[in-house]
């Protein structure tokens, strides 16, 4: 199996997200960066599949030079190849991103053969455009289903599970195919020391691909107006229990 995972480097916010003075980005001065959570699970899933069936995992990202960190992290948990479409780090709109990813995937398939499976995150943690995977797959003529929280490979077909309220749906796709996966499909492993060392030696393929901008443009980011709630302290420790139950009675949930 040849599996491609598309991942995005995003800030790792804690309790509060601040915006830069020009309003065009998250102020990441005091934040670390990470792989968008759905996509981290995509990498784990791909590694698990190749551990069972053999094959190789390639991880592709579009971003600044620093996004190589996310490729190295993927290598530290078992991915085999890393490809970076290097940009100046400014946010790209979804159509432009999809066009560049499509061009990169076509080039990778031209040189290395087709990918049996392409995994996207269901949506990125930051901009959340909900469309890049769908756009890429349409251009490649490949089927894609989003919202996937379970994959089973049977020969050249795959069964994919998607949660619905109170149960799940099953899709059956012939490969080559693509899926948009969600966190919960697995529990990503932590890198081992050996993995970390191996990732340092990962040869990253860098591509320079520009693409035509799409119709959606970012004007300004801002924080939603905070509804300042006046927290009523009901008490300290177990002695507060009667006051809590009074509240529950008042709300009619008892």
């Amino acid at each position: 199996m040849r599996i491609l995972c598309c991942v995005k480097r995003v800030p790792a916010p804690g309790a509060r997200i601040n915006v830069t003075a020009d309003g065009l980005a998250v102020d990441a001065a005091h934040l670390g960066f990470t792989t968008s959570p759905h996509e981290e699970c995509g990498v784990e899933e791909a590694v698990q599949i190749t551990e069972r069936t053999g094959g190789e995992v390639t991880v592709l990202t579009l971003g600044p030079a620093e996004a190589a960190e996310q490729l190295r992290y993927a290598a530290s948990v078992g991915a085999h190849h890393g490809v970076l479409i290097q940009t100046d780090g400014a946010a790209w709109d979804p159509e432009r991103t999809a066009r560049a990813l499509t061009a990169a995937i076509e080039a990778l398939e031209e040189s290395g053969g087709p990918f049996d499976l392409i995994l996207f995150g269901n949506e990125s943690a930051d901009s959340g455009g909900f469309q890049v995977g769908v756009r890429v797959c349409y251009s490649l003529g490949r089927p894609i289903v989003n919202g996937i929280k379970g994959i089973e490979i049977n020969g050249s077909t795959l069964r994919a599970r998607r949660e619905i309220d109170g149960g799940f749906e099953v899709y059956e796709l012939a490969m080559p195919a693509a899926l948009g996966v969600k966190e919960g499909i697995n529990l990503p492993r932590y890198p081992t020391m050996r993995g970390r060392l191996a990732s340092k030696k990962l040869a990253i393929t860098t591509m320079e691909i520009d693409a035509e901008a799409g119709g959606q443009a970012l004007v300004r980011l801002h924080r939603p107006a905070e509804t300042l709630s006046q927290t009523t302290i009901l008490g300290h420790g177990p002695e507060a229990a009667p006051a809590v139950v009074d509240v529950l009675e008042e709300l009619g949930v008892l």
Partner: peptide, 16 residues
């Protein structure tokens, strides 16, 4: 539109 699941808002334009 919402970013970060609603923690941040984005003023955006669409030309089509």
């Amino acid at each position: 539109r919402v970013q970060w699941g609603g923690s941040l808002l984005e003023d955006a334009t669409l030309s089509t």
